[in-house]
Amino acid sequence: MVEKILLTALALFAISIVIALVRIIIGPSMPDRAVALDMIGVNLISMIAVISIVLKTKAFLEAILILGILAFISTIAISKYVERGIIVELKSDD
């Protein structure tokens, strides 16, 4: 029973990633794409967590942490590029 619930959750996460991918492709504006990329990152983290429950292993926990860090940094970089046009400033103006 628990196994079936976990597999269903995996399938739903996969469908959610596909929907976010559609939003990235047809997304009218860049902030839509940034939010959809962040959503794909969160869904991937959740999928890895569910997979590690299914396989009864702790080997993927570092992968979850690394994926979280990379999704955080890449979302910040994309939003800063969308908002200001540059990513790393040479000198702050305040």
Partner: peptide, 22 residues
């Protein structure tokens, strides 16, 4: 290798939130 990559991502996060001079 991946320890260095994670350390580098921390430094890149510093550069993103501040600026190069700081």
């Amino acid at each position: 290798f991946i320890g260095g990559l994670v350390l580098a991502s921390a430094i890149v996060l510093l550069y993103l939130s501040n600026d190069i001079e700081t």
